[in-house]
């Protein structure tokens, strides 16, 4: 990247930090050029020149039998032209002393390499040492800009909007309701709803601890709907500025003895479910430990309702009298 030294205002500083973060987060394979046109070492420099002109290349890797053996750049072509040797083979003029980067490395590794060397492009290798693509400074700039835009426009905006949701709306009682239908026996998608709920809570500005505790509670409840119900059930999450109410309900078969169901280790799960890592009889116990309030209401005919409540004021750190 051409070193740009803009005047750093506070507004800019924020962007710069974000860019630096992205340089560590983004991986090389996310920004590199993947469909690389590589050259055979045995074509003439003249042919390479034609390809470069036609395709507007300023450089290309040279491969033989699937192995990267060199890289040919415009400078090499100029070199051959100067020596009046344009009918020489590519292998005679290509650069064989190559610095490469690995596709899973963060983009910042490529930036460091560009800063250290004078190369304009770097071959990118996969885990088997084969050519996976080419990265240029331009690729990095584009990739960072795209990611920055994406990050800002999507996540930051969503986060900002979401966390100010309640401030913007004036009503007697504002709440946001999320609802998910959970199908009996759907182990493949088991946890998707909880995962979305956790993400929603984070976007709404909940602390990571609160989001984690709610996520765990609602995940156990979701797995219970998948494992123990007749037809599945529903997860209903109501988010209010001061509390989160999570409810899991189904239409049967109901719990015979609620007290017994709450005993650690009590389980009616089949061996098959146990072999999937669930049904150890800890789910309800776990939920109780995670949330501030829990109620389990069940009857043989009407199914089960599980209420889980989490309060969002900072009474945990700061005990204060609640009116």
């Amino acid at each position: 990247m051409t070193p740009i030294q803009p005047e750093i205002s506070d507004k800019r500083a924020e962007t710069i930090t974000k860019t630096e973060e992205l340089a560590y987060e983004l991986r090389i394979h996310e920004v590199m050029t993947k469909d690389v046109h590589s050259l055979s070492p045995d074509i003439k420099m003249e042919e390479a020149l034609e390809i470069f002109q036609k395709e507007r290349f300023s450089g290309a890797p040279v491969e033989q039998d699937g192995e990267l053996i060199g890289i040919l750049s415009i400078e090499d072509l100029i070199h051959a032209l100067r020596e009046n040797h344009i009918d020489a083979l590519v292998r005679e003029y290509m650069t064989t002393q190559m610095t490469t980067v690995r596709k899973h490395d963060p983009v910042v590794e490529a930036l460091k390499t560009f800063a250290r060397t004078n190369y304009g492009r770097l071959p990118v290798l996969d885990e088997n040492g084969k050519l996976a693509g080419i990265i240029t400074k331009g690729d990095i700039t584009n990739g960072l800009l795209k990611a920055l835009q994406r990050n800002y426009q999507e996540e930051e905006l969503i986060r900002y909007r979401a966390s100010h949701l309640f401030e913007d709306i004036v009503s007697g009682r504002t709440s946001l309701i999320l609802r998910y239908d959970i199908r009996k026996g759907d182990f493949i998608h088991g946890g998707n709803a909880s995962s979305n709920i956790k993400r929603a809570l984070l976007r709404l500005g909940a602390s990571p601890q609160v989001a984690r505790r709610c996520g765990i509670a609602v995940y156990e409840a979701e797995m219970n709907l998948i494992i123990h119900t007749n037809h599945g059930g529903t997860l209903r999450i109501e988010i209010e500025p001061h509390k989160i109410t999570m409810e899991a309900y189904d239409d049967g078969p109901g719990i015979e003895d609620v007290e017994e169901a709450m005993r650690p280790g009590f389980s009616t799960a089949t061996n098959e479910v146990r072999e999937m890592g669930f049904g150890a009889g800890m789910g309800l116990v776990n939920i109780k430990r995670c949330v501030d309030e829990m109620r389990l209401i069940s009857s043989k005919d009407r199914g089960t309702n599980l209420y889980m409540i989490m309060y969002l004021n900072d009474t945990d750190e700061n005990p204060q009298t609640v009116n």
Binding site: G190, G191, S194, S195, K198, G215, Y219, M276, G277, F278
Partner: peptide, 11 residues
């Protein structure tokens, strides 16, 4: 199984 990854994400 995929549940392990879900569990990891939640926890």
């Amino acid at each position: 199984n995929p549940q392990v990854v879900r569990t990891a994400q939640i926890a």
